[in-house]
């Protein structure tokens, strides 16, 4: 038990009497945690990060270049925004590359459970990287964001593969145009 009354019978410092040297801003818990996450980032060989401003660890890009599966040879850029409530809330992740994918829509929204409903503070940036990488290896038609792509993957795998290839080379799939994103 802390005995405040006996410890502090003396009045406390009056307002504004900041101690010398105490004026350096303290790092937020979110900042401390993301520094830790990033310093321990263990990227698979198909992934890379880019920090436009190395002093800003809260905003960065992840580049995934799958080496197998439907999306082999493509280069997909994701933006990460880590908010002040990290890790209570997950980072906001968007796909900046237009991609024909059952779980990524044309606005770049990504359907990955740990980015929303299954996020937990024990998860890290690394968990998200692996989750995203997995989406390219095993697109999941059960959780569609792009319904056409999902239906196609289930009904006609070959056609789906052709459409993925066409989108990555740059071209139309249906009425939607995709920029070239081959390496």
């Amino acid at each position: 038990m802390i005995k405040l009354f006996s410890l502090k019978q003396q009045k406390k410092d009056e307002e504004g009497s900041a101690r010398a040297g105490g004026s350096q801003k303290k790092a937020s818990a979110a900042q401390l945690r993301i520094t830790k996450d990033l310093n321990e980032l263990n990227l698979p060989k198909t992934c890379n990060t880019e920090f436009p401003d190395p002093d800003d660890l809260l905003n960065f890009k992840l580049i995934i270049c799958p080496d197998e599966g439907f999306y082999r040879g493509g280069r997909f850029v994701f933006s990460f925004k880590v908010g002040p409530n990290y890790p209570h809330e997950p980072p906001k992740v968007k796909c900046e590359t237009a991609v024909y994918h059952p779980n990524i829509d044309l606005e770049g929204n990504v359907c990955l459970n740990i980015l929303r409903e299954d996020w937990k503070p024990v998860l890290t940036v690394n968990s998200i990287v692996y989750g995203l990488q997995y989406l390219f290896l095993e697109p999941n038609p059960e959780d569609p964001l792009n319904k056409e792509a999902a239906d196609e993957l289930q009904s006609n795998r070959r056609l789906f593969e052709q459409h993925v290839q066409r989108a990555m080379r740059g071209g139309y799939v249906g009425s939607n145009y995709f920029e070239r994103c081959l390496k």
Partner: peptide, 8 residues
């Protein structure tokens, strides 16, 4: 809610 649920 899962994104795919609200989308589809």
């Amino acid at each position: 809610f899962p994104l795919c649920t609200i989308a589809n």
